[in-house]
Design a protein around this nucleic acid. Sequence first.
RNA 1: CGGGGUGUGGCUCAAUGGUAGAGCGCUCGCUUGGGGUGCGAGAGAUUGCGGGUCCGAUUCCCGCCACCCCGACCA
Length: 517
Amino acid sequence: MNKPGETQKTEAAAVTTRAQDYAQWYLDVIKKACLAEHSSVRGCMVIRPHGYAIWEKMQRELDDRFKATGHENAYFPLFIPLSFFSREEKHASGFAKECAVVTHHRLKSVDGEIVVDPESKLEEPLVVRPTSETIIWAQYKNWIQSYRDLPLLINQWANVVRWEMRTRLFLRTAEFLWQEGHTAHATEKEALEETWRMLDVYSDFTENVMAVPVIKGRKTEGERFAGAIETLSIEGMMQDGKALQMGTSHYLGQNFAKGADVKFQNKEGQLEYVYATSWGVSTRLIGALIMTHSDDAGLVLPPKLAPIQVIVIPIFKNEEERVKTTDAAGKVLAELKALGVAVRVDARDGIMPGAKYYEWEGKGVPLRIEIGPKDLEKGSLCIARRFVPEIKGEAPDAQRRRRKSFLPRAEAIASILPTLEAMQKELLERARANRAARTRVIDKLEEFEKFFGEGGGFAWVHWAGTSEQEEEMTKRFETSIRCIPFEDQIPPEAKGEGVCILTGRPSKQRVLMAKSY
RNA sequence: CGGGGUGUGGCUCAAUGGUAGAGCGCUCGCUUGGGGUGCGAGAGAUUGCGGGUCCGAUUCCCGCCACCCCGACCA
């Protein structure tokens, strides 16, 4: 770490965009905000308290939405017997290359060294779940007999393991936390409705809670979930212009019901396989949050996800002032708590106020209240925002001044909730504007190449190629079809028919192409 | 698993064939206090692991392991 005063004393500013710088910036934010770090365990992540507190807030918001749509939580085993896992062929082969497998159940001491006891080999290996479809459907077989048992709407909060070659904090770790919904329905229509409904739940969450705008659409065959008939996703754009898949909702048809032999008797008395969906979001969302809003000063949090929304900092230079200002801070704390604000006082002695500002800004606290002797005299409070809407060409000094406001005490307290609400909206608007600035409607391959050669972003492109041609595009430009967007997701300027950018064949609508994480 | 790189106090890095030093961080004291105060004292490392060469290895050689970057794979 460098001397704080030298390299880190930077104002909130535009984020650098060169890929390597961006990766470094991302790690710096995580470190400054004390969110997470690499574990000594290969590919695994330690989520620190502040990072976990954000996850808990996400969980709560999501859980409320799942409950509101009729879902219940349950829990299923971490281990999946290999035979269960192989019941759906495409599913098994899709995940085959990234599975951790338990083969023994005992250790023993040999010459003072602890080794795996070869005699404890399991008859059947256990796969550590990379996702739980198979183990859950093995159970559903016992739960479903009649159309009266349907729909079965269940969600699980769990950890899963995918043995990735390369990992990145939050975005791709060997073990990650997530929720996975697994539902069973009597008809295809119902299951499809559920698939679409849950995608809406996700987009509602990412936009209204995370303040991250997303494009909703269908995945191409090559990008589909292993074992799904249809995969829907929400795609966000990060500040470097890359796309991030933030959530998926799958229509599984009768594939898993057949694999686990789950039949029900319908109203006509006939046996039928049930129709399934599954959907999930993970701690990757925290990565999306960081990469969408944060700046060079550190994390920026939408107020709805900020574990601490307001930090109160008493300022003093002697014992008398310390007592007075911390006392005043305590009163502000109580009043804000009563309003339902997540607030904390930082009364640590021996740390300069400036150092505290940097620390809490790095952690993404949206609002800071400074209480010093001058404020007590005037009966005012200083409120400093973590960010303000940008004004083009504004000097950093001017922006800093604009972030602070001095208000009479009562007025200041009353302004907190409306300000938090405004900041929540501003973040979404800012993210929308950033996305719009890096989105193009493109018809010519040369233009496409140029766009992605100079930073890139989202490209609305006509496509009518094959899966092989899709791969060819990926090899040539490092881009992929993020999704085939729903009609209402396509901006007006990108609507209409045209011809495929690669093959020239007629195309009914444009798809979303981008480089992605 | 292929190609490249790196392993030295908590972090970022120096140095040296004669068993290590700085900055930041940490602890204590004073000082300071509305954007990272300043000074002083102090704690903290069997130099990734194993072997070889050598009187002597953190340094040279070999093997292994871990991590990072670039590919293949991905929520």
